[in-house]
Design a protein around this nucleic acid. Structure first.
Lengths: 150, 150
DNA sequence: CTGTCCAGTCTTATTTTAGGACCAGTCTGA
DNA sequence: TCAGACTGGTCCTAAAATAAGACTGGACAG
């Protein structure tokens, strides 16, 4: 029997990880946010094995994160564009980036930066309460759904 | 020769994924936010193989995401508590949760919810510009560091 | 046409993971 | 107090995922 994974979990975190919780998928999405669209561009940029890339792209298309579109330069080739569902991953990529920046670099070590149109570094992600007050981990808790599995 | 992974990448997203970009690590962290602290509790709740859990916990400790602390109930056993670095992962877990909620559930399907102390559902994560204006994916770009690898 | 580029598929070797069996200290209650 | 259960692992094996590269067939440029 096949292992189900977490695709049916009642916890959205588990489901999300089941869908895109591997290194390559998220790196592909990150590159897509940077404007990459072609198989060869992803492959070159990531150094990923072609079979892996092929499988990941197909899975992301199947999930509705990417969609195949005709090449923007008029050639007969194909490109992969982020869908709405894919663009919705923006906060995921940004949160990983901010955690990495804050916790994984030695002082003085350089890294790429996320900036706005004016070239200004962006602020930190904020989780607002319904009333607009910023919340931290200690201000929140998870209210479980009825189901047993998480 | 050993594969280096992305531990030295100049892109913080790649480094972050190299550190905690696997399903189990993030589920463990999610459970830690829910208050779980003991080996057996994680094991029961996740249904993870003990060897895997052991390896993951040790890695998270080594990374400084968790730290081993004496059991809070006075017994001789050990617990694992989130460090500052671990608590910094809060936005990562929340962003995954929100993406999952919005994109992975059929209408009417129930899931657990993140609520504040008053029991109110929380708002969506917001990325503010330095000036405080909310930014979306199309308002930002990545400014590369000097290095070649990403 | 010919050679090169693009976007894959297929194959094989290696690494990782899942699932259990096993084990040594800790605690509990009869 | 000591038998049995609980805790927190380690170790083994089988199965699955991944890396690396050879191979392929259509697109395109000269």
């Amino acid at each position: 029997m096949k292992r189900t994974g977490f695709a049916e979990a009642s916890c959205p975190v588990a489901r999300a990880l089941d869908a895109i919780g591997d290194v390559w998928s998220l790196l592909i999405v990150r590159d897509a946010f940077d404007g990459l669209r072609r198989f060869g561009d992803f492959q070159k940029n990531l150094g990923i094995a072609k079979g892996m890339l092929s499988a990941r792209l197909h899975r992301l298309v199947e999930l509705g994160v990417l969609e195949p579109v005709p090449a923007s330069d008029g050639s007969a080739y194909q490109e992969y564009a982020l869908t709405k569902k894919g663009r919705d991953l923006f906060p995921v990529v940004v949160s990983l980036r901010q955690w990495g920046e804050a916790n994984l670099y030695a002082r003085g070590e350089v890294h790429s930066d996320l900036v706005d149109e004016a070239g200004q570094p962006v602020g930190k992600l904020v989780l607002p309460s319904r009333a607009g007050r910023p919340l931290t981990w200690s201000d929140t808790r998870v209210r479980k759904a009825g189901a047993r599995k998480r």
